[in-house]
């Protein structure tokens, strides 16, 4: 159960190696955490994350094999986690950036990006929502992106998946309003990390830990949609108003 000062006892991370999700975990009050489930593709990186959290003093860290593209398995994977005990916080933290040019050249790659970033998020999101709704409490964090606010020429395959994801998450949030389940949609800007390594940095770039800090404080305050950094809310509002001929020529 989440307590009066916002500390959860059990956490499920879908995308168990996500830097943002792991940074979020490290920012939560460790003394109350009894169970952490890292769901992801079995890999050295996932095993290392389990080992690292355990060494850092987290109790009950376990890993669960999860393949985003294998949507038929999502229901049973999420059910098994909830059947073993209430989950106070679910982080939907998987996703890929993809390569715009390669996607344009080989649309099958674009389909994979869409399957992971949108279809699999929708599938895990609905499965998690059903179980959270059934237990009558809990929080669901959806990692969206400002890329979904307006798709850019340089990145519109990825942008369109985040756009779809964000619309889905907003609707899910409304569906769960007043049910004891809280949905937090996080629209991050450029996050320095594994996913963006080697890419030119956009203005107002943030670290995974900065995103994590906003997630933790927003969960406490019960906020619905947040931008990281916060100034992006205004920037994106302006960007959405730009005439297309101007927007098309923007460097970012």
């Amino acid at each position: 159960m989440r307590d009066a000062v916002g500390a959860p006892q059990s956490i499920l991370i879908l995308g168990g190696t996500s830097e943002i999700a792991l940074a979020t975990l490290r920012r939560l009050p460790r003394s109350r955490i009894r169970r952490v489930v890292l769901a992801g593709r079995p890999s050295e990186r996932l095993a290392a994350a389990v080992a690292e959290l355990t060494t850092a003093g987290f109790a009950g860290v376990e890993q669960v094999a999860f393949e985003a593209t294998d949507t038929d398995t999502h229901g049973s994977i999420i059910d098994a986690v909830f059947d073993a005990g209430d989950v106070d916080l679910v982080l939907l933290a998987f996703g890929v950036l993809g390569d715009q040019a390669e996607s344009e050249a080989d649309p099958r790659l674009a389909v994979t990006v869409a399957t992971i970033n949108y279809t699999a998020m929708l599938s895990t999101g609905l499965n998690a929502a059903r179980r959270l709704r059934g237990q009558g409490h809990g929080s669901l964090v959806v990692l969206s992106s400002v890329a979904g606010d307006r798709a850019r020429r340089a990145n519109f395959v990825y942008g369109s998946t985040k756009s779809g994801l964000d619309a889905f998450a907003q609707g899910l949030s409304d569906a769960l309003h007043g049910s004891g389940v809280h949905v937090l949609v996080v629209r991050a800007g450029f996050v320095r990390g594994r996913m963006t390594e080697g890419r030119p940095e956009a203005p107002m770039a943030v670290t995974p830990d900065e995103v994590a800090a906003v997630i933790v404080s927003s969960l406490r305050k019960g906020r619905g949609t947040v931008y990281v950094p916060a100034q992006l809310r205004l920037v994106m509002a302006a960007v959405k108003l730009l005439p297309r001929p101007v927007f098309r020529k923007l460097p970012y």
Binding site: R2, D3, G136, H137, L176
Partner: peptide, 24 residues
């Protein structure tokens, strides 16, 4: 048929401190 739709009698309950409500 939607598992998300509120059912009859369901209410959000909390203690006097109103800190961590849940639905029952």
């Amino acid at each position: 048929i939607s598992p998300l739709v509120p059912r009859e009698g369901e209410r959000l309950l909390s203690g006097w401190g109103r800190t961590a409500p849940s639905m029952a």
